[in-house]
Write a protein that binds this DNA or RNA. Structure first.
Lengths: 195, 195
DNA sequence: ATGTTTACCGAACATTCGGTCAGTTGACAA
DNA sequence: TTGTCAACTGACCGAATGTTCGGTAAACAT
């Protein structure tokens, strides 16, 4: 087993603190987590945390960036920009699911942000930018007649990414690969449950 | 316009306090909301709130019960127990969407609960009971060959109700009826987006 | 006019919050 | 053996937290 989060013997670093913090944030909620809670989870005192990181809100900011960077890598990819719109949409959904699974705790945290601070507002704005990209893609696929008629593209976007994002509510690491998850999700959303 | 939340002239009651509180809880999160925030939203001082309700956690408990009662009415209905499994599932989805829309702020609050207190743990347990009912329904439909083969029923349950629950993240009252919403959701999930 | 009730205010409460800082510890270098 | 330094502790700070309580102004009842 590799020591990914600790150096040698005892001792933390900014990365291990962030990793543990995000875990606790997702258990208790960001506002519901005290620095005392974090310290307990790390096995140190509160003040030790401030040796490694500047404070609570910085932990949140770094975590949210990690989630958003992953999502923006998806929409910035060449394969999100070439081919039939429906295929591009399918590709973006599949790889959003992958990012969500790979960076599960960070994305989970992102999806619970409500804009309580400047940090959260900034994250919400970046997230909306991602949403706008996907919405444009769905609209394009609908205009090209690649999506069932009579469905509002804006509504489809929200339902589709509502489904994707709901994964953070129940997915447990190790139970099925990201690809299998994406297969099932795309089978339901693109081809339907009914036989 | 009917005065639903105030009696006559100025003055609040337990109902108007609950209604306002749930609104603020959903904006800032339960833990992110102080009694001072609530008081400001109500236009009174903190102490006035305690004249109408026993405290912050009781407000949460009452709100969560309102959401859960609505969902249990759906699964307790006769129409959730008779007919082909796929039709019962469709009916439960449609009316869960209706409850979600009718009691939007209460259900929104419910879906964000993480178990930070005894109140929250109790709500989570009731919610899991609802989930188990739906999971059994999906399993039945799959066993009856009414759902596309190769899809794990447990996974389908989570994706399906992930989609339903995601509605609380973006639905705005007045923009489309609950029935139209359910139509679109069922069209996507049951028949698929692709033409 | 008098008493009662309803709905509220202002001050205070014990506790917890995020954060600071002077000092300690133990591993390693010279 | 001594000095250095990364990593941490423990005591503490001011502010904010949820809640309590004594008082009170206005509406209503008698």
């Amino acid at each position: 087993m590799a020591t990914t989060s600790r150096r040698r013997g005892r001792g933390h670093d900014p990365e291990s603190v962030l990793s543990a913090a995000v875990g606790v944030f997702n258990e208790r909620g960001y506002d519901g987590t005290s620095m005392e809670d974090l310290a307990r989870a790390l096995g140190v005192t509160k003040s030790a945390i401030y040796y490694h990181v500047p404070g609570k809100e910085q932990l949140l900011a770094r975590a949210l960036d990690r989630a958003l960077d992953g999502l923006f890598e998806v929409v910035a990819d060449q394969r999100a920009a070439t081919g039939p719109a429906i295929e591009r949409l399918s590709w973006v959904v599949r790889h959003s699911v992958r990012v969500l699974v790979e960076r599960l705790p960070y994305v989970t945290l992102l999806l619970r942000v409500r804009g309580n601070s400047a940090t959260e507002v900034a994250a919400l704005e970046r997230r909306r930018e991602f949403d706008r990209f996907v919405a444009a893609l769905v609209k394009e696929a609908a205009a090209a007649g690649q999506i069932r008629a009579g469905l509002d593209p804006a509504l489809v976007t929200r339902l589709l990414f509502g489904t994707v994002n709901s994964i953070t509510e129940w997915y447990q690491p190790g139970r099925g690969t990201a690809d299998d998850l994406a297969d099932a999700l795309l089978a339901m959303a693109f081809d339907g449950l009914r036989v």
